[in-house]
Design a protein around this nucleic acid. Structure first.
Lengths: 204, 204
DNA sequence: CGCCGCCTTGATGAGGCTCAACTATTGTGG
DNA sequence: CCACAATAGTTGAGCCTCATCAAGGCGGCG
């Protein structure tokens, strides 16, 4: 078990991959840096997610807590032994990887082809889905455990643009901010159309 | 076994995932479309690569041949049966998925944070690596089986920008075009620096 | 040899970035 | 509990990169 305060990191890109983690509480961000400091956040992790279950000898990204976070971990050897003893787990791991891959593909579409407002709308819908899966019931609100800069680095934008697009979605009455870090979705289908580029904003 | 001519598709996004494929000859592109026709190519496939080995009920993208291509395929049931009989294959599949995931993460960094010239440089280095892995020896040249539009849709750019950046890399003597679709790398480390954003182009 | 599609090159413009100032929020110590 | 500092977020002005629109060149195939 391991507890983390915000900003604390679990491991860094390039560290030898000696442990496997499972998130039990909190939220984390995964990111990689370019030589000049540009950062791309490749994902956020929440309770139930696995970390470091690659095959590689080194972790491929840095992981950092967004809030107070709790992790369970196993040594790589113990984890591998466990898998050998329980072959059906292998299939489950594979399932997980396939799911992450599908998510990565959606993110590539977002980063390669969507406009700023569409990116933010997609991001919010993803968080809303997650909130619903976590609570097991329909939701209209969710928290933003990450900063505007983190959102920007996840969506391939700047914090200023995130802020402006937030204002834009608000002005369209698609969302409302209950607090700085809490979003209420006012028009889910409208937000979906925006996210999938069906909003034909040049008409409005 | 299945043979394909250029432009022919193996399956479409949303088709029921009834078969699993292995590429034996040729090259293919994987892509998804947005509602208004914007396209993001999420990957290219070459001999040795697997296709449709997801867990999902439906294919998550469309696959189309770039040139004359040959595929081996199995029904999903036969494939699953084979895996049950050969548990070590499961691990290999997982290995493969993990590798694809790492690649997807690199592509997210490219799409989210790299400038146009950096994207093209990264793309060329990837193709050079692949050519070396395929031939088993050091290489300085490789073919481009895809059109400029395909490259653009893979890198999140337009065909015009790809063309201009190609001219730019050529003017820097990092590459040379042996033919319209054949690239020779003249300065690999220079290309690497360009790809990783270390080229400090404001100095030059 | 000539047509057609692909690629390149040029001119213009827009979306998002940068830089800067301002406001709101959070945390800290008196 | 309040005052203040420090941090995070918002808003505005100008600019830059890349997209768009348009024209011309090249190559491959009939």
């Amino acid at each position: 078990m391991q507890r983390l305060k915000p900003e604390q990191s679990v491991f860094h890109e390039g560290d030898p991959a000696r442990r496997v983690f499972m998130v039990t509480h909190g939220a984390l961000k995964l990111y990689t840096l370019l030589a000049d400091g540009r950062r791309q956040i490749t994902g956020f992790m929440f309770p139930g997610d696995f970390l470091g279950v690659s095959i590689d000898e080194e972790y491929a990204f840095t992981v950092e807590a967004l809030e107070d976070t709790e992790l369970w971990w196993f040594s790589r050897e113990a984890f591998d032994r466990f898998i050998s003893d329980h072959p059906q787990v292998e299939r489950e791991l594979y399932r997980l990887a396939a799911h992450e891959l599908a998510e990565a593909q959606r993110q590539m579409v977002l980063l390669g082809r969507k406009a700023a407002a569409e990116r933010l709308a997609s991001f919010f819908l993803g968080l809303l889905d997650r909130a619903e899966r976590a609570s097991g019931k329909a939701e209209t609100c969710f928290d933003l455990p990450m900063s505007r800069i983190d959102i920007a680095d996840y969506l391939g934008l700047t914090k200023e643009t995130v802020s402006r697009m937030l204002a834009h979605l608000r002005s369209l009455r698609l969302i409302r901010l209950q607090a700085q870090n809490r979003v209420e979705v006012l028009n889910r289908s409208g937000l979906s159309e925006m996210a999938d580029g069906m909003s034909a904003d040049h008409i409005n």
